[in-house]
């Protein structure tokens, strides 16, 4: 998703909060009594408004959860195996242990545009995060790689290109250098 909307929403909210605090701070220059009846009325309005805003955001966002819907069948499956400090991406099962890593490892997977791709993400050692970045540097999707579990991340790529994979869960000494690649090609190819 785009991060512009949440960023602007936050900056607007922060500006409103700072303005309200500044106005109240300036009001202390003139002494006066507080009209508690009016303050409580304002509080009620604030309370109801806040609940309405939160309900709207819940209604808008909960139907769009990133978790795989059982009804949809993925058209392509990529097995992602993580270890300190590399990802293996293959259409086959991939390495099932550190010992078979060199033999079965592949740093790159090729997928097609417009295809529902399911990444089955697991780890051979510690927690990692499998995060796919678009060619222009946006964070497209991510899921954790957790010992003993397979996390299924589904993505439809709209644009062809080279999508970098980075680890977003701190995993040790070379965490920042952990990489993989998803090469997205046009469907017709």
């Amino acid at each position: 998703m785009t991060t512009t909307v949440p960023l602007l929403l936050f900056l607007l909210s922060a500006a409103i909060i700072a303005t309200v605090f500044a106005v109240v701070a300036r009001s202390t220059a003139r002494a006066g009594e507080v009209d508690y009846a009016r303050a409580n009325h304002l509080r009620k309005v604030f309370f109801v408004s806040l609940l309405v805003i939160l309900a709207i955001f819940l209604g808008l966002t909960l139907p769009r959860l990133p978790y795989p819907a059982e009804a949809a069948v993925p058209e392509q499956i990529v097995n992602v195996v993580s270890r300190q400090f590399a990802f293996s991406l293959t259409e086959g099962p991939g390495p099932d242990s550190i010992e078979t890593w060199e033999r079965d490892f592949s740093p790159l997977a090729e997928v097609r545009t417009g295809t529902l791709v399911e990444f089955r993400v697991r780890t051979l050692d510690v927690n990692h995060a499998f995060a796919i970045y678009t060619p222009d540097g946006r964070l497209l999707a991510q899921t954790q790689a957790m010992p003993g579990y397979v996390n299924r991340l589904r993505v439809v790529f709209d644009e062809p290109g080279t999508y970098n994979v980075m680890c977003l869960e701190y995993c040790g000494l070379s965490h920042h250098a952990m990489r993989g690649v998803v090469e997205v090609v046009e469907e017709a190819q």
């Binding site: 998703m1 949440p6 966002t61 909960l62 995060a129």
Partner: peptide, 9 residues
């Protein structure tokens, strides 16, 4: 949740 996918970590 939907925002967190872009902001997590």
């Amino acid at each position: 949740i939907t925002v967190n996918q872009a902001f997590h970590n």
